[in-house]
Design a protein around this nucleic acid. Structure first.
Lengths: 184, 184
DNA sequence: TCCCTGAATGTTAGCCACTAACATCAGCCG
DNA sequence: CGGCTGATGTTAGTGGCTAACATTCAGGGA
């Protein structure tokens, strides 16, 4: 069952998702989430650094970095990054995809969260820049490529989350094809 | 001298820039800015919807929309958007460029502001999508193109603000060339 | 010039996200 | 069963931001 802290964390997350579904993100306070989880507001912030972090965590950064490093260095940085991102997302098992959609749907409908999502990709962009520069790409070029791909990817994810489409990989492919026209 | 409200707004803006330079963005509160401007915290929020809006306002949206519409519809959406954005920024007079740099430098050094900057470009992205779709581009494709170009542009602006480089146009050109390889 | 009307500002009160310092309690280890 | 450590509670506070209502000021008409 995991340690006590892990169980509390799970209860907080479950309570938050319930409340978000009932009254929306903005209308539910951290204190309410904590109360439903049978815990104090303080405890909530000990498990989650912010209210937004309930929804915009992305634990896939290492996978993305590795996938980019696997791409041929002959490709231009944007294509390499785009292909790496595609492969990384393809490794997600179906249940995780469903969970991602539930969360992204809330983010898509909450303007302030869209902003924090963009902010939350800073770490991912750093990973991409590292992967690209380790293969000789200039830092400025790598930074621009990372920002462009993440901008396109985030937007594609948000749009996809609002559709009934099940094919996440297809949506990502379509979006990244707009950036680099070759099929990967 | 303009109306009274305009003068108050100017004093608030000037006071804010002073304080940001003295102790940084996070360490100065809205109340302190108001006090230095000889006004109440309430009045501050009547003139600026948020503390971040002191720095991330971008009044150039209509210019960008018009510039994109001027591009040939034969080009792919990303190239068209990139060229429009270049032309729009080229119309900025040098004093405005200096002012933009002062502000962006603060944004670049403040992580929370980088996030609000991304959020603040939502309006610009909407303008870009409108311009593209009015020429027959699909909505999804237009949305992705707008997000990618704005991601690259914002990143380029932040990087440029931290250098001693005077040539803003050149920096933008370099960044957008990474997205669409033809010179415009 | 004086007034007077509406805009600009002040006052008060409050919510929420988030943080810090210190006290308490629960569970596992020997 | 006793003690030690990590998880939780308590209290107190800051800062961004909003709402309802009172007050003052600026500028145009008489």
């Amino acid at each position: 069952m995991g340690t006590r802290a892990e169980r509390t964390r799970e209860r907080l997350l479950a309570a938050a998702m319930e409340l978000f579904a009932e009254r929306g993100y903005d209308a539910t306070s951290a204190g309410q989430i904590a109360a439903r989880a049978g815990v104090t507001e303080m405890t909530f912030f000990r498990h989650f650094p912010s209210k937004a972090s309930l929804l915009v965590e992305d634990p896939y950064d290492p996978v993305i970095g590795a996938a980019i490093r696997r791409q041929s260095p002959d490709l231009d940085p944007i294509t390499r990054t785009a292909r790496g991102v595609r492969e990384a997302w393809r490794e997600l098992p179906p249940p995780a995809v469903d969970e991602v959609r539930v969360r992204l749907r809330i983010v898509a409908q909450t303007p302030t969260l869209r902003a924090s999502m963009a902010g939350g990709t800073a770490a991912t962009e750093a990973v991409i820049v590292d992967a690209l520069t380790s293969d000789g790409v200039g830092r400025f070029e790598a930074t621009i490529a990372a920002a462009a791909v993440m901008g396109a990817l985030n937007t594609a994810l948000l749009e996809w989350s609002l559709t009934a489409d099940d094919d996440l990989g297809g949506a990502i492919d379509t979006a990244l094809d707009i950036l680099s026209d070759r099929r990967g």
